[in-house]
Deep mutational scan, measured.
Amino acid sequence: EADPRLIESLSQMLSMGFSDEGGWLTRLLQTKNYDIGAALDTIQY
């Protein structure tokens, strides 16, 4: 079963217009401990 923190973070990022095609966003959020800010910083640079 998916981590509730992942579901919450992923749904927030999907609502911002990101896609999780191929699961890349799920993996990114997992490596950033479900921190949306850290994930966005990684995507920006």
Rank of each mutant, 00 (worst) to 15 (best):
G23T: 01
R27W: 09
M13S: 00
S15L: 09
E1K: 09
G17E: 02
R5A: 09
M16W: 14
N33R: 08
L25H: 00
E8R: 08
F18V: 03
E21Q: 07
D35K: 04
T31D: 15
L28G: 00
D20I: 03
L14P: 00
A2P: 13
T31S: 15
I36H: 03
L6F: 08
E1H: 12
G17L: 03
L6V: 05
W24A: 04
D20A: 02
G22M: 07
S11L: 14
G17A: 01
S11D: 10
Y45F: 14
L29D: 03
L25T: 02
D3P: 07
K32N: 11
Q30R: 10
R27C: 09
S11G: 13
D20R: 00
D35I: 07
G37W: 15
I7C: 09
Y45D: 07
G23M: 05
F18E: 01
S15E: 14
D35S: 10
L14W: 07
A38F: 06
E8N: 11
A39K: 02
I43K: 02
T42V: 10
F18N: 00
Y34A: 04
Q44S: 13
T42P: 01
G23C: 07
E21Y: 09
T31W: 09
L10P: 00
A39V: 15
P4T: 11
G37H: 10
G23R: 03
Y34M: 06
D41V: 13
I36V: 11
Y45W: 13
I36G: 01
I36Q: 04
D35W: 05
L6E: 05
L40A: 02
Y45T: 11
S9N: 04
Y34H: 05
L14V: 08
N33G: 12
M16N: 03
T31A: 13
K32M: 15
A38S: 10
I43Q: 03
R27L: 14
Y34G: 06
G23W: 05
S11H: 08
K32Q: 10
S11P: 01
E8F: 12
T26E: 05
Y45L: 15
E21N: 12
R27Q: 14
Q12Y: 13
L14H: 07
A39G: 01
Y45M: 15
G22F: 09
S19T: 14
L10V: 07
I43D: 02
E21W: 08
L6S: 04
R27F: 08
Y34F: 10
N33E: 10
Q44F: 15
R5L: 11
N33P: 02
S11C: 10
L29H: 03
N33F: 09
Y45G: 12
A2L: 14
G17P: 02
L40G: 02
Y34T: 02
S9D: 00
